[in-house]
Design a protein around this nucleic acid. Structure first.
Lengths: 219, 219
DNA sequence: CGGTGTGAATTTGTTCACAGCT
DNA sequence: AGCTGTGAACAAATTCACACCG
């Protein structure tokens, strides 16, 4: 949609810059220096400048970057110009908690669909949605122009669900399951595995004195 | 505790190898080749071999790696020899969902404590725990030898809570809040921000044809 | 053979340091 | 004066390709 491509390392930092810029703009700060932005996002100032330069975002020497401009350009680069509706598959503990989490819609990802295969759950309210039947997945995904799917089913169903979503037109998936999902180049998948996070934390936690601490505070 | 230090990129992949090895061992597979392991974890085979070599894990030429040995050594390297008790602060939607998620204890991270500052919630059951008062945080953390904390409070309390946990002896934190936490080198922090995940997904989802797809399927 | 283990090449990412703009 | 923007040095990570071994 937009420009040339940005390095993955940079992309992974953009949400942080965006977040900081939104906050600053809300506080009526007209400009930020790379140094301030760096402090807010725990990134090296030179890296901030490189990253922004790679988006063709330009600041003013002696002044800094325009916060409103930052918000506009970073949103643009990430493709957040318009809302992307989300579907959650699986109305168990995780699925329901995600539905009740307001942070998604606030940041441009309204949840439009919650699906479950359990007929006992279908029809029940969750947040301000109603659980719908998995049988109608394709139809509903298309009707709501869903681009993003969140898989919160038991692990054994994850792959089937993912494939159905993709065939129905979903391009990006957040996978809360313990399954690995390989969908070739039909979709992008990000796995969120909290036990994995704890394992990594555990490693770095044990070597706190030894190594530098902030090594692990990445996305 | 254990050996010399492992590169962060390697550490971030170890949980995946471990997971695969555990599954293989459970399926009575005595050995795996780096190629198989690579396929299961979506990593390049050469990278798998490099990573394992860096842990001093050695395979047999023409055969592969011993699965049981992999499980043992990787667990060891990550410091997962014994359980690490976890405390969850905040008994809202996320906090409660995490308490009910069994995956943690299964993988060696038993949840021993749920805390909330809201007196109305204190005393209520969540999973098989009871919500306890934030007032007793220090005492409880010490009594249960908590090493890992999960912060699931409203954003404005995150820093204070984090500091209290750290002062009470917690070395590693999972932060579900939108706040950035900088605790110097007193603790390791990992931020879990699902809207950020969606933003990154959104970027890669839009350039599916253009770029290689699996770029984003990292931890 | 069918696999590992690793030198060497390559790519990617980070950081310094400073010229140059406003 | 105070910042950006970037060349150049550096560091980390990935990947190839092949010698070597069971």
């Amino acid at each position: 949609m937009s420009d040339i491509d940005i390095s993955t390392a940079t992309v992974s930092r953009l949400p942080r810059y965006l977040h900081a810029a939104v906050d600053l703009a809300a506080d009526k700060e007209a400009t930020v220096s790379s140094e301030q932005l760096a402090a807010l996002t725990q990134v090296n100032p030179a890296t901030v400048r490189r990253d922004l330069a790679s988006l063709a975002i330009t600041g003013r020497r002696g002044v800094g970057y325009d916060t409103a401009y930052l918000v506009y350009e970073i949103s643009n680069a990430l493709g957040l110009n318009q809302e992307s509706p989300v579907a959650i598959v699986g109305a168990g503990n995780i699925g329901r908690a995600l539905c009740n989490y307001l942070g998604f819609s606030e940041r441009g990802f309204p949840i439009r669909l919650v699906l479950d295969s359990d007929q006992a759950k279908v029809g029940k309210p969750v947040g301000d949605l109603t659980v719908q039947s998995m049988d109608d997945l394709e139809e509903l995904v298309q009707a709501h122009s869903i681009e993003l799917g969140i898989i919160a089913t038991p692990a054994e169903y994850a792959l089937t669900v993912a494939e159905r979503l993709v065939r129905a037109g979903v391009t990006s998936l957040l996978n809360f399951t313990t399954q690995m999902l390989d969908l070739g180049n039909h979709a992008v998948v990000r796995k969120v595995d909290l036990a994995t996070e704890l394992q990594i934390l555990s490693y770095f936690g044990q070597r706190l004195g030894t190594t530098s601490a902030e090594a692990a505070s990445q996305i």
